[in-house]
Design a protein around this nucleic acid. Sequence first.
RNA 1: GCUCUGGUGGUGGAAUGGUAGACACGAGGGACUUAAAAUCCCUUGUCCGCAAGGACGUGUGGGUUCAAGUCCCACCCGGAGUACCA
Length: 949
Amino acid sequence: MDYNFNEIEPKWQNYWREQHTYRCSNDSDKPHFYVLDMFPYPSGAGLHVGHPLGYIASDIFARYKRLQGFNVLHPMGYDAYGLPAEQYAIQTGQHPAITTEKNIARYREQLDKIGFSFDWEREVRTCDPDYYRWTQWTFIQLFNHYYDTDLDKAMPISHLVEQLEKGEVETLAEKSWADMSEAERQEYLMKNFRLAYLADIPVNWCPELGTVLANDEVVNGLSVRGGHPVERKLMRQWSLRITAYAQRLLDGLNEVDWTDSLKEIQRNWIGRSEGAAVWFPLAVDQKSNMVPGAQAYMGQSSPVEEPSFEIFTTRPDTIFGVTFMVLCPEHEMIDQITTPEQRAEVEAYVTWAKNRSERERQSEVKKVSGVFTGAFAINPLTNERIPIWVSDYVLAGYGTGAIMAVPAHDSRDFAFARHFNLPIRQVVAANPDEVSDPATWSESLDSKEGYAVNSGFVTGMKVKDAMKAVIEKIDAMGIGHKTVNFRLRDAIFSRQRYWGEPFPIYYKNNCPYTIPEKCLPLCLPEITDFKPTATGEPPLGHATVWAWDEEHECVVENSKIDGVKVFPLELSTMPGFAGSSGYYMRYMDPTNNEEYFSQKASQYWQNVDLYVGGAEHGTGHLIYSRFWNKFLYDLGLCPKQEPFQKLVNQGMIQGRSNFVYRSKENNNLFISKNVPGREEKTVPIHVDINIVTNDILDLDKFRAWRPEFAEATFELEDGKYVCGWEVEKMSKSMFNVQNPDDLVARYGADTLRLYEMFLGPVEQAKPWDTNGIEGVFRFLKKFWKLFETRADKPAEKPELKILHQTIKKITDDIERFSFNTSVSTFMICANDLGALGSVSSEVLEQLAILIAPFAPHIAEELYHQLGHETSVCDAKWPVYDPAMLVQDSFKYPVSFNGKMRLMLELPNGISQDEAIAAVKADALAQKWLDGKEPKRVVFVPNKIINIVL
RNA sequence: GCUCUGGUGGUGGAAUGGUAGACACGAGGGACUUAAAAUCCCUUGUCCGCAAGGACGUGUGGGUUCAAGUCCCACCCGGAGUACCA
C-alpha cells in the first residue's frame, strides 16, 4: 500500500476530535507546561503559509512535552475585534459580528487541516461577552487603583483617599485635600493617580480612520493600518498609566528568556535616561523692572521661592555652558513671560507649530525654526541672564517640555545656535587643555568622554565626576535633584470605533463612574450605521439603547436620560490591545463565570512557559500584556510577575515572486530568463506563483491565466521557460501568496508541516519557496516504505545505533528549537535504515514516536499498524542509550561528544606518539571503524587526544 | 544618527573552538520503462591534474589559539527596530 495522506490525515483528525485526544485538564499530577501562540486576527483573506510557521513550531514542542509526560496547555483563540471588519461594515453594511464569525469558521477549517494539537474546548474570542466582561472588569480595577511609589505596587484608590483624609499624605497640588470640592478631588485623583484615567492629552488623531491611535500604531506620522496621515490633537481620552510601571517593565526583562534583540527593542521603547531636574528662575525684565508673569506663574510644585521653571537634562555637568533656554510651543509659561514686543511673533510661531502635521514636522526635522520670547532666565550656578526661546525641536511629551540648551555639546542645540547666531561656549574637552574656539567647529562635541573646562568648581573633573558634583550642588542649593525620565508614554485607551469592547463607564455631571461589577458584561449595542455621527461622535452615538439607569442598574433607551437617575454611557470603545492583554490567563480557566480565572487554575499553570509569535508586537502587545500581568500580580491574581517566560519570535515569511519577461517590441512574446540579450529587450511582469514549478512556467496555464496572455508566444531555453524571481512582501497584487490548503491538498499536512520547518530556522525571516517541498514528500514516502518492509525480528546492533543517534539528535534539536535540522536528521535516519534492508518493528515503533510531534498523522497511522490500540500521543518519548553510540569499550577514560569524534584523557607516562599509535591500534583491533584506521588523530595540550573517526 | 541582527556553493541552509558545505532543491550522467510518471544509483565549492593527488576557499583587514565560519578589534554590505527623547 502506498503512502496515501488523503486517507490517513482526515481519519486521524476525526479520531483526535472524537477521542478528545488533546483535551487538557487543570487537575493533574503531571508536571505542567504551557505552550502558547499569539492568537490571530481572523482576516477575510484567510491563512497564508506564514501564519502556521509559528503554530507548527509550537505544536511540535507541545506534542514533544506531552510525550515527555507533561500536562500541556496548548490553546488557540481569536483576536476578533479589529478595524478591517469595521471598515468592511462601513462599505457593505455587513455587521462586523457576521464577517468575523465567517472568517473564524474559515480559519478553523484551515487550522484543522494542518493537524494541530490545540485544546479547542478552551477557545477564547475577544469579542465574546463572556470573555470581554473580564477585559471590562480589569478596566474597572485599573480605574479604582493607583500606583503607590512607596510600596512599589498598585493599591486601591480608597487607600490613598483614606491617607489624604487623615492627613497622612499631602496633595501635590496647591490646595490641600480638605480645601478641595468633590469635583476637584475627583479631578485630582483622575489626573494624578488612577491607573485608568480620563484626561485632555495630545493624541494621534487619524481623520481618515476617524479615531485616535496609540504610539505604537503610528509610524513616521502615518497610521500602521492603512497608512493614513496622523495629526496631533488635544482630546479628552482614556489612558492607562503604564508609565507607573516603567521601571518594573524594564527590570522584568532581566528575568525572562527572550532574545536580546527583542529585549533591546523594549528597553529602547521604555527609554530610561538618568539625569537631573533643575529649576531655572526667571530674570527681572529690565524695562518693566518686574519678573514677567510673576503674579500669574509659579512653577508648579517648585521648590524655589521665586518664579522659576523646571527642565530635565542628562548632562548636568554642562550647566556652565548653557547659553539659552528652549520651551516647547505647547508650554503653558509662554503666554505669561512673552514680552509685548515679541508677543505677535511668538503667537504666530506657536500657532504655526501647532498646526503643523506630524508628518511635516518629522520630515523637516533638519529645518531649524524658533522664536525669542523676550524673557530671560537666570543660570542658578553662574547668575547669568540667558534668553528663553520657543522651538518645536523641544517636545511637549518628554521631560518637562523645557530644556537648558548647551550648543557646544548637543547637536540640536548647536544647529539652533548657529541658525540664530547664539553664543556657543565650550565646557567639555577631550583633554583638559584642548580648548578651542567653538566658532571654528563644524559640529558639537557630544561625547561623555572627557573633562570639564570653563566650568567653575567642576573644572578639570572627568565628565562623570562633574555630573555627580553638579547634582550634589544643585541638590544642596535646593534647586534640583537627580532624576530619571522615561520615553514610554501612557497608553491611550479610547478608540472612536464600534467594533471593540465598550467601556463600563457612564457620566454623571460629566464625571465618569464605573458600572457595578455584577452588571458585567456591558454588552456592545446593536447599530446599523457604523460611521461617526453627524455631530462627530463615535459610531456608538447611533445606538438608541445606550444609557445607564443607575437605580435599576441596567442599560436603557437613550430617551430616558434625565441626568438624575439615567445617564449617558461612554461612546468610545477599547483598542485592539485591550482584549489581547490578558487572554493567556483566561485560557487557564476559559468558562469561569465567577472570576477572570480561578486561583486554583492560575496557581497550577503559573505563567506561559513558551510563547511563540512575531517580533512586530515588541512595542505593542508584548508591553501591554506585561503591564496587564504586573497589575493583576499586584492584585494578587497572577502568580508570576512576568507573563511569558520564554519567547520565540518566528521570522516573517516573505513572498517569493516570479516574473516572466515580455518583449518590448512584441506584447505577445515572452523571453526565457537566460536567453542572451534578454535584459535589454524585455520588461519583467509578475506572474502567479501557482502556475510556476521550480521556476519553470507552465505555458498552457499561463495562456489560460488571463485573457491578455491567451495569444502568448515564447522564446524558450532548452525547451523550457525559466522565470525570474525576487523576494517581496507576500501580497495578492504580486501574485505570490501561497495558501496552505493548496499544499495540503497536494502533499498532505505532514509534508507541509515538515517542509515549513525544513525551510530554515524558525526565528529567521525567509522567503516562501515551494521548490524544495518534493524532497520532504519523498522522505515521507521513504519513511512509509520502511514500515511496509519491516521484519518481525529482534533489533540488531546497526539499526539500534542509528536509532539511538536519531533519538539523541532529535531530542537535542527540539530542546534548541532547531526544527530544520530535525527534519534533516529524520532524512538521514531513513536513508541509513533503508540501506540496511529490512528494519525491526521494535526500532520502527520508536521512530514513529520520534516523528509524532512533526508529522502526527503518519506517526499515528504507522503506530497503529504496529498493533497499538492507543494514540501515539499517549506513548513515551524514547531515551537514548549512550552505550549504543560508542561501538566498544576503550581502555582509556573516554567522553563521546555526540559527533564522530572522541576525546580521551591520556594516561600518565605515555608519550604523544605512543598514545596516537596505541589509539590507532585499538581502533583497528576493536573495529571501532569497521576495521578502518581513524582518519585523523591529533594530539593537543593538556593531555587530550582528539581522534577524528 | 543610535540599537539589534545577519553576511558560508547555482539555491534554501548544516557545523558544543576541532574533517567547512550535513540534509534538501536544482543541474549533469546512468538504470528500469515502448514512453511518461514514480523509483533507484553516480557526479556536483573553485582552480590545477588523465589519474593518484595538490592548492585555494565561510564579506574585508588584523589579532588570540596547537586549531577560528565560530572568540576579540577595526572596516564594508544587507535586514529589522527607533528617532529632534534633551
